[in-house]
Amino acid sequence: MNRRRFLAGAGLAGITALAGCGSLSTQSTRAPPLVEDRPDATYRPTHVEGMGMAGMAQAGDYMVGLTYSFPHRFWTVTGTTAEKVDIRSEDSLHLMATVWDPETEMVLPVSAGLSITVERDGDPVADKPPWPMVSQNMGFHYGDNYALDGDGVYQVTVRVNGMSERRLGAFSGRFGEAGETTVDFDFRQSTLEQLSFERLPDTQGDRGAVDLMNMDMIPTSQAPEVSALPGTVLGTSKGRDAVYVASWLRDAAFLDDGQSYLAVSVRTPYNRVPLPMMSLDGRVEADGEAVFEDALTATVHPDIGYHYGAVVETDASEPSVGVDVIAPPQVSRHEGYETAFLATPSFSF
């Protein structure tokens, strides 16, 4: 089905993901006990949940897909500290929004955030901004647990704020304005309970990750393969868990004569999910001389993806690059990521 022709509110069939081997349950919203002695890294969670489609529509320059699953625990991050958010008794579902460019189908982390309001027959039901999140099987999205008033048709309004990230290449001049859309969501508790709920007793706590979901109507948030990055790849380093790839571009269309571009792509191991909303500092030396020392800017480019970059006033072909992580990704995490990506390492390329 062509995503651009998909009508908002249509196609409420569930999207399911089965990763690995385990026991299946279709009527559980309980979170199994957390693994004891979890590693300070990406690990396989206790369970994997299926996902249902709530609707999809265009909001200005953006496409927005709404999905839902069982209410579940997650962790918010402030600085280098992750804090657990428990499921409340009144929570009906975990509602998720994915934002992407309809032309390239690249998922867009928007640091300015989203807002979600839920109404039913004109009466307000919920009004709170979702958290930016990373999940092993759902990738990067915006989500939170929401309380609804039982079965029925709800009007869900999503506002995507204009991107503050730098946009380069074909993204230049786009995504600066906010976009808003409303979809009708026909919520049925019985449909929610039919979503898959797979426990992973044999592998929970092991280093690794479950697979990303395969979704027909919503693109997957993945950084490019290292071999697909433009320019010269200077190197790949791994902090406590995140993977950092530095590339050097000398002939990009957005550069002037005598300029080069440093791009640092940060992604999860195993699934290459981009890790946004970090603070990185960079240093560049060329021919023994310091030519750049400053913060790297969060940027989106169709070929590089979401990354941290800087225009450097040199056309040197073999620079020496240093990167310091000042703050880890300030994004919430689903289980399996809550102990990862909290360190602030330094690298040399």
Rank of each mutant, 00 (worst) to 15 (best):
E335P: 03
D123W: 13
S237T: 15
V243L: 12
M138I: 10
W100Q: 00
D206K: 15
F175M: 07
T299S: 14
V153H: 02
V266Y: 11
G179Y: 08
S69E: 13
P201I: 14
D144S: 11
T344F: 00
E193F: 11
G169C: 13
E193C: 05
R240D: 15
A295W: 02
T220H: 01
M63N: 02
A223W: 13
N161I: 07
D211V: 00
E49G: 08
G282T: 04
N271Y: 10
F349G: 04
V311L: 05
F187T: 00
G231F: 14
A340L: 11
D294N: 14
T297C: 03
R44Q: 09
G65C: 07
T203H: 05
P39K: 13
W100C: 03
V77S: 04
A97N: 15
M53L: 11
P329M: 06
T98W: 01
S28W: 13
D144E: 04
N145D: 01
T232D: 13
S172N: 09
D149K: 03
L262D: 07
P45M: 05
A54D: 00
R207T: 15
R30I: 09
D324T: 06
V226P: 02
R207V: 15
F347S: 00
F70P: 02
F197V: 07
D40Y: 12
I326K: 14
M277T: 03
Y68K: 13
V300T: 10
T80E: 01
T26F: 01
T117R: 13
Y306F: 15
R88H: 07
T104L: 12
M53H: 13
T297I: 03
Y154D: 00
E289F: 01
N137V: 14
M278H: 02
